[in-house]
Structure formats: structure tokens, C-alpha cells
Design a protein around this nucleic acid. Structure first.
Length: 422
DNA sequence: TCTGGGGTCCTAGGACCC
DNA sequence: TCTGGGGTCCTAGGACCC
């Protein structure tokens, strides 16, 4: 029995989340901005029609948005994350074979789904999500992840398909693949597209028909795999159980440039605090912390660029915020130069380990209190909201903190922000 | 003036080993 | 003029994803 996968995703997902709670936004252009209200990262069809590009800096389109009455929102991650969770609950009611691929996309294995046809199953999924969560979606069907992705792309671009495209048959693939540009294939980015177009490969069909060896020469084993997937040969497995993560980072641009060392200490301490929370939530620890800081990529000629990073090694793997804070402090002392106007900093770790398997130090006593303290901290912040208790080092006033000036209420996760029906 | 954040995977090249 | 043959591990950098 041939495998059949669905890729379902939300249309302009962040924007659709906003529309669920404000129907007046229907048929109006809507965009959602990145951190610090920097760039447009989600646009409805109406906003795209106005020429607003993906990743377009907001300051460049501010006038256009005012003129055209575009509804503009800061990112409301708490809301989008909760809506995503609800959608995935619906998928798991259909079948346990679900891979949550991103905040708005999931692969679903429909091979054994109890439906007369997979297309019928796909339509049912769509309408259930629309009815229960309020989000419009598209579904792509195919025997491999790459083909399911491609089908999803076709469903989005062709409204007459009514949100579902099925590429499980050879005939359907023969009909559609010649019409998809090669850069629209999952895994083909800018650099690969240039290489492919140079040898006359401009469509998904031409990429599928490219010699496997040639594909590997040009795009490494990744390209070879991709070509096989386009031919219907599964090379990329469904990951129903998410693999253990390998790294963890917290990096942010500042809302206003940092010029004082004390502010940098605070900002990095705040990022480290968040990193510690993330590590503990995943049950992981690290024995080295990397810290970087740099000036703006877009700074003018008159501004001195500066970029530096360093790694501090810890005596043993930990996810204790206090231990990580000490390391972060040392790193900032090592990197800081007075003069540059810093635009961004971050803390990163790779080589995460599960604490119980980590190499212990011969000389450090077991610190039971640290574990209990962190547990208490996390419990309080979970119950009363993130940041209820934080190390003083992470700052109070925080003039550099990320701005979300147009954020909608967190309708589904905060009691005091519930939608009002009047 | 204002330009996001957080991941994964692959390869090449150097250091080092026997 | 001639200068072995494998391995492993680590890191940096590139490419890609949403």
C-alpha cells in the first residue's frame, strides 16, 4: 500500500489568528510584524496585492499601510502558539501519525485513515479546523513529504482547487509539476535555484527529471534526496516523536541601541534567564555558553561596525540560571568595547545533554538546592506569568526591551484578556 | 530614525591517531 | 626525483526552513 501524506497549514497563519477574534478584519488587508515591529512576516492576500513583500521593513511601508487602511499587528506569539496547539489536537483526533513541523504546518500520515478517499479526508480536516478553531487552511497530498509540500503550494496558488491538491497519482504530477517554478520546491533556496537555472532546470518537473548523480554534484546529497522525493520515492521520514533538540538560543535586537555596559549586562542576563527556562522546560543542560553582541548590519559608513562573540566553559553541565548568569557576565566583560552602538546580542548553546547523563565534576558537590530553587522559580512564573520572579541582574526598567506596540490581546491564554462580546 | 528569531543539516579542511 | 594509507573528530561556513 503506497504511503499517502498530507501537509496542512494555515493560510497567512498569524493574520488568520487575528481575524478569528475580530471579524471586521475579514476582506481587509492585514499584516503581522516581527519582533520590535521590525518587518512584515505575515500578510493576507489583500496585503500581498498591495505589494507588501515578505520581510519588508515596516518603516518603508508605514505610509502605504496608513493610506490603504492596512490592519497592522505586532506578533502575539502566545495567541498563535495556542491556536496552533488546538489545530494539532484536531489532527491527532484523526490519527496519531502527526508530525508538527512548524507553528502552522503539520504532516499527517493518511495511509490508514478510515475514509473513502484521501481527498475526502483532507476536506474533512479543513472544514473541521475552520469550524472548531476558525483558521482557513490548505492541504497538499502526496506519497512523499516533498510532494505533499508541493501539492500544498499548488493548492494555495490555485483558489479553484478549493484548498486541496492531490499529487498522489502520476497523472496529477505530470499535469502540475511543469507549472511550478524550481525555487518553489521545498529545499530549493536562492543559491540552489541559481545553480539549477544555469543548467536549464527551471521547473519542478525538470528537477524531478534531472540525473541523480548530476543532482548530487550540484546540490550535495540533499539535492539527490530531493529529486528522489519528487519522483515519489520517500527519503524523508515522518518525525512523529520530535528528536531531542541539539541547540538552544535566545537572541534579540534591542528596541533602542545599547551604549552603556550596564545595559548590556542586563540585556544578556535577561536572555540568559530565558535560556535557562527553555533548557529546563526541555529537561536539558549545557556546559558552555556562547555570547555575542554586534552593531547594526544596516549602520551607515560613519558608524564603526563591531561584532564579537565568545564561549564560556562551565565546570559541569547545568541549567541553573544563576550558574549561567555568572558565565554570561564573564562573557560580556570579555567582549565589551565602549563606543559602538550595539543593536543586537544573544546567548547560544550547542551540545545539549540530559543532566542525568552529563559528566559530573570530581570537585563540585551535588547542589540539590539549585534544582529546588529553579523548580520553585519555574512554578511561580508558570502560575503568575513569565517574569513574575526574575534575577535582579536581568534589569527592571529595560529601555532596550523588545517592543510590541500593536499587539492584540492574548484572548485564549489570559483570563484578563478574554474577548468581550457586547 | 526605523531593517526578526530560532532551528537543522551538510561539506571541507585541519588536527590528530596508528 | 623520490615523500603511505587509512581512520576520527572538531570547527567554520554555507544553505535551507518557517
Amino acid at each position: 500500500m503506497e504511503r499517502i501524506l498530507a501537509l496542512i497549514d494555515g493560510n497567512s497563519f498569524y493574520c488568520s489568528c487575528e481575524r478569528v477574534f475580530d471579524p471586521r478584519l475579514e476582506h481587509r488587508p492585514v499584516i503581522v510584524l516581527s519582533n520590535n515591529d521590525g518587518c512584515a512576516v505575515a500578510r493576507t492576500a489583500e496585503a500581498k496585492a498591495l505589494g507588501i513583500g515578505m520581510g519588508e521593513p515596516f518603516f518603508k511601508i508605514r505610509d502605504l499601510c496608513r493610506r490603504e487602511k492596512v490592519a497592522v499587528f505586532s506578533s502575539n506569539y502566545e495567541l498563535y502558539g495556542d491556536m496552533s496547539r488546538r489545530m494539532n489536537e484536531i489532527y491527532r483526533d484523526f490519527t496519531p501519525d502527526v508530525e508538527t513541523y512548524s507553528i502552522d504546518e503539520s504532516f499527517i500520515d493518511l495511509t490508514h485513515a478510515p475514509f473513502r478517499s484521501v481527498v475526502e479526508a483532507a476536506r474533512d480536516l479543513r472544514s473541521t479546523v475552520r469550524r472548531w478553531v476558525g483558521i482557513p487552511t490548505c492541504v497538499g497530498l502526496g506519497p512523499t513529504k516533498t510532494l505533499a509540500k508541493l501539492a500544498n503550494h499548488i493548492a494555495k496558488k490555485n483558489p479553484d482547487l478549493d484548498g486541496v491538491c492531490d499529487l498522489s497519482s502520476d497523472e496529477a504530477r505530470a499535469a502540475w509539476l511543469p507549472w511550478v517554478a524550481v525555487e518553489d520546491v521545498w529545499g530549493i533556496g536562492r543559491a540552489s535555484a541559481v545553480k539549477l537555472r544555469r543548467i536549464g532546470v527551471g521547473t519542478a518537473a525538470q528537477l524531478r527529471d534531472l540525473d541523480l548523480r548530476r543532482g548530487r554534484e550540484l546540490l550535495t546529497v540533499v539535492g539527490e534526496r530531493l529529486i528522489a522525493e519528487l519522483r515519489g520515492l520517500p527519503c524523508i521520514d515522518l518525525e512523529i516523536v520530535p528528536p531531542q533538540r541539539k541547540g538552544c538560543a535566545v537572541t534579540r535586537s534591542f528596541s533602542e541601541r545599547i551604549v552603556a555596559k550596564a545595559d548590556m549586562h542586563e540585556a544578556v542576563a535577561a536572555y540568559v534567564t530565558r535560556l535557562g527556562e527553555k533548557l529546563r522546560r526541555h529537561g536539558l543542560a549545557t556546559s558552555h555558553l556562547s555570547v555575542f553582541m554586534h552593531t547594526s548590519r544596516f549602520a551607515g559608513e560613519d558608524e564603526q561596525p563591531y561584532s564579537a562573540s565568545t564561549t564560556v566553559h562551565l565546570p559541569e553541565a547545568t541549567n541553573d540560571t544563576l550558574a549561567l548568569l555568572a558565565a554570561g557576565r564573564r562573557a560580556v566583560d570579555a567582549l565589551w568595547r565602549q563606543g559602538p552602538r550595539y543593536a543586537k546580542a544573544g546567548v547560544m548553546t550547542t551540545d545539549l545533554v540530559e543532566p542525568e547523563f552529563a559528566q559530573r565534576s570530581l570537585f563540585l558537590p551535588e547542589d540539590y538546592k539549585s534544582v529546588e530553587l529553579m523548580e520553585a522559580l519555574d512554578r511561580i512564573n508558570k502560575r503568575f506569568g513569565r517574569g513574575t520572579i526574575a534575577p535582579a541582574a536581568a534589569g527592571i526598567r529595560k529601555p532596550w526591551a523588545t517592543k510590541f506596540e500593536m499587539r492584540s490581546p492574548r484572548y485564549t491564554t489570559r483570563l484578563d484578556e478574554l474577548p468581550r462580546v457586547c
